[in-house]
Design a protein around this nucleic acid. Structure first.
Lengths: 340, 340
DNA sequence: ATGAAAGCGCTAACAC
DNA sequence: GTGTTAGCGCTTTCAT
């Protein structure tokens, strides 16, 4: 490991026979410089491989070109894909990402905010299953621009990007009804609290009412978000002899768990029971039967959030505090049309 | 968005009626300070909510407390889990992660190195499917400590962490042989080049030889790493009437693709054909039949790499340049014991 | 158009 | 033990 002191602006200035201010002007294009001098400086820069030290620059400009990103879980498809979108756009705008992972723990969330703040990030993007009031408070107190990517964003007065959950759930339920399903169970997964899936449950209810189908509490299963939670819940339902002709799960993982539970209880999917999911994770295309599900533009969620946050940094006007991206229903194999 | 100028060391010094050096000493514990004075400073810090500006600190200490992490793909389970390990350990050591995603593109890889370097990261962790010579060269030229997480690491004179690929493949092949499989196909997926799976192929060969089974070129399928690549290849093989009694895929995704291809060609897994994978991604526990596969300690790969790299930063001696972590075979349902 | 100099917030000699 | 001061590498007035 050779210890090579990096070239500084001083070195360049000396080599080019100009003052450091001139060098600064050249690299920032901030003030006119005689083209001849400019060229000389540029040559020296190329020759020495000089790279301005962003730390020093940030110290004076107060612009770190850093975006803080807080995710609840890295290994989760949702986060990963959103992160992809964030990464792509921030790169376009020459921002870098400072990453923090919270495992959905409140304390870690707040700690992360403080760390990222200390690191001088210019803005934060917070991905959360379930936004916490205290966290929002802490975030607001920092005075740093922030945007949330979360289904629960509408419960707070914050900038956010999300998908339209209620209509999506309504449409999927309607889709199931259109395919002549009479007894539709809902597997409502929640990460932390109940309230976050409320919108999807609401959508489910709306569709039912619209079709004069009565809402049956027994057909609504609340469970955790893990695979095994979903599996056990559905297994239980089936064993209690509550046999729906369709199951709408509010996450793909739960939907897959439901499919497996059905099979293990002797029911075929989709012949006996149809199953629909939510999220369109990669796996849903691969699993057999291929999952009919609701697609959310995960990448775009991240991309849009990043654009908004960069606008905020630049002091630009934000049209709407809450952006909702469109969803779409992806028809695959796990739902059978029972009309025929 | 209230514009509040953050408290600086000066403000604290003034409020506490001491010099800034004393404040510095208190916050860094770098020199003894009378406990009474210390308390006074601490009080002011608490009162004002002062947080030292790491940028300014880094500028003088040349320690950014930043780790650069380069991954080939964020949405990939492998990267995500490794990243998890990196995140966890770096947090322990008070380092933050600057993230770059390369989509396995050489150019982006090099660009990322330069960006991260400019951002003053103290070390880099590079996750790569297939290490590129030029990239290694560029990296070495930066003089920044680096460690690679890659199967192809052994081809270079670099610090690396990986799993023991060859023995793992050998063992899995042996396992298949032990279960009385006579005709074992190998689906060798590669991300970019051929050479990276060589070790696994080698392991496969070794096991075959050891059991006096002859190596049959026709049973080795080379294909890309995507699901559909794997699916198509296996489908083709089956349609060419090459019917193995076991398929060993060098990735779980390929293994799942193989399972689906078998089913679609009318073969039952594991009754007609056994299938084994590699990686033990989350999905492999959930898929039906549950996948028998090789587990790699993904999280640990990241964790260990981070520890090593931090040691390097601190100028500590590194015992071995190449660390290889143990693997294990996870027996699930996709392989049948044909001895009975 | 260019240079000199101040200063961003902090650490680390160096004095006392 | 504590204060003074010189930078770290850069941008940005303010002169010239």
């Amino acid at each position: 490991m050779s210890i090579k002191k990096p070239t500084t602006i001083k070195d360049v200035a000396k080599k080019a026979g100009v003052s450091i201010s001139t060098v600064s002007r050249v690299i920032n294009d901030s003030k006119p410089v005689t083209s001849e001098v400019k060229q000389r400086v540029l040559d020296v820069i190329k020759e020495t491989g000089y790279v301005p030290n962003p730390l020093a620059r940030s110290l004076v400009t107060k612009k770190s070109q850093l975006l803080g990103v807080i995710v609840p879980e890295l290994t989760d498809t949702f986060s990963a894909e959103v992160l992809n979108g964030i990464e792509e756009v921030s790169k376009m705008y020459n921002y870098d990402i400072l990453l923090a992972n919270t495992y959905s723990e409140r304390e870690l969330e707040i700690k992360s905010i403080n760390i990222l703040r200390a690191k001088q990030v210019e803005a934060m993007i917070i991905v959360s299953w379930d936004i916490d009031e205290h966290t929002v408070e802490v975030m607001k107190n920092t005075g740093i621009p922030a945007i949330y990517i979360s289904k629960t964003a509408r419960d707070f007065d914050i900038y956010s990007v999300s998908t339209q959950n209620e209509p999506a759930a309504k449409d999927m339920t309607q889709y199931l009804i259109d395919k002549a399903h009479k007894k539709i169970a809902l597997v409502a997964t929640s990460h932390m609290q109940e309230n976050e899936v409320d919108q999807r449950i609401a959508g489910y209810k709306v569709a039912l009412e619209k079709n004069n189908m009565k809402f049956d509490e027994n057909l609504v299963i609340h469970c955790g978000s893990s695979y095994s939670d979903g599996y056990d819940s559905v297994k239980n339902m089936l064993e209690s002899n509550i046999i729906p002709d369709a199951i709408f799960a509010t996450s793909d993982i739960a939907a897959i768990a439901a499919i497996n539970a059905c099979f293990d209880s002797g029911y075929n999917v989709p012949n006996d029971i149809s199953v629909a999911g939510f999220n369109d994770i990669k796996l849903s295309k691969v699993y057999r039967p291929k999952l009919t599900t609701v697609n959310q533009p995960l990448f775009d969620l991240g991309a849009v959030a990043t654009r908004v946050v960069i606008k905020m940094i630049n002091g630009e006007e934000i049209e709407e505090k809450r952006v909702e991206l469109p969803y779409s229903i992806i028809e695959r194999e796990s739902v059978l049309d029972r009309n025929k």
